[in-house]
Simulated scan of single mutants.
Amino acid sequence: VIPLCCVNVSVVLGQKDWGVTYTKKSICALKGSTVKLSCSYTYPRGRVTTTFWFTKNDAEGNPVRLSDDPDYKRRVKYSWDKKKGHTLTIRDLRESDSATYKFRFITDQTGGKYTGDPGVTLSLTGLLVKVIPAGKRRTLTCSTTCTLTDNPTPTNIWYKNRQPVKKDSSSMYSISSEDADSYSCTVKGREDLRSPAVYKPKSSVSVSPSGEIVEGSSVTLTCSSDANPPVDKYTWYFQNKTFPNGFGQMYNISNFKSKDNGHYHCEAWNGRGSRNSTALMIILPDLSCDCSCRNHSGCSGSHPLSLWTHVVQEEGLHIHL
Rank of each mutant, 00 (worst) to 15 (best):
E315W: 09
A268H: 04
E315I: 12
I132W: 08
L13T: 15
T149C: 05
D17Y: 11
C185S: 00
D69W: 10
S224I: 05
S176F: 01
L305T: 06
F105S: 03
F256I: 01
Y234V: 07
V76S: 13
Y78N: 10
D92H: 09
T155K: 15
R74T: 13
Y22N: 05
T107N: 00
N156Y: 13
K24Y: 08
I90A: 04
V129F: 07
L122V: 10
V12I: 14
S123V: 15
T115M: 03
Q15R: 09
S208W: 12
R294H: 12
G216Q: 00
V129K: 02
T49W: 00
Y264M: 10
Y251C: 02
S96H: 03
L193H: 09
G112L: 04
C185P: 01
S143I: 00
S67N: 11
D192A: 12
I2S: 14
H320R: 09
V165D: 12
I132N: 12
P3T: 13
Y43G: 13
K200S: 07
Y173H: 15
L307V: 14
T222E: 03
K102W: 11
S225G: 02
F103W: 05
Y173T: 12
T220E: 01
N270D: 02
S96D: 07
Y22V: 06
K102S: 09
T42F: 05
W308Y: 06
S40Q: 00
N295L: 09
S38F: 02
Y159H: 06
T115A: 04
I90H: 03
K25T: 14
I283F: 06
C146P: 01
G211Q: 07
R162W: 08
L321I: 14
D81W: 00
G111L: 06
T100V: 13
L140S: 07
F105E: 03
M281E: 10
T186C: 10
V48P: 00
Q313P: 02
L307W: 09
R275A: 11
V9S: 14
R91S: 15
N57T: 14
C142F: 07
K257T: 15
S300G: 07
N62E: 02
N245Y: 04
E60C: 03
A197L: 04
V207Y: 00
S210R: 14
S171Q: 13
G316E: 10
S274H: 15
L307S: 10
V9K: 12
V20T: 08
G111W: 04
H263D: 11
N295Q: 10
L128V: 02
S177L: 11
E95Y: 02
R74D: 14
P229S: 01
N240M: 14
L124I: 14
L128H: 01
S33L: 10
S206N: 11
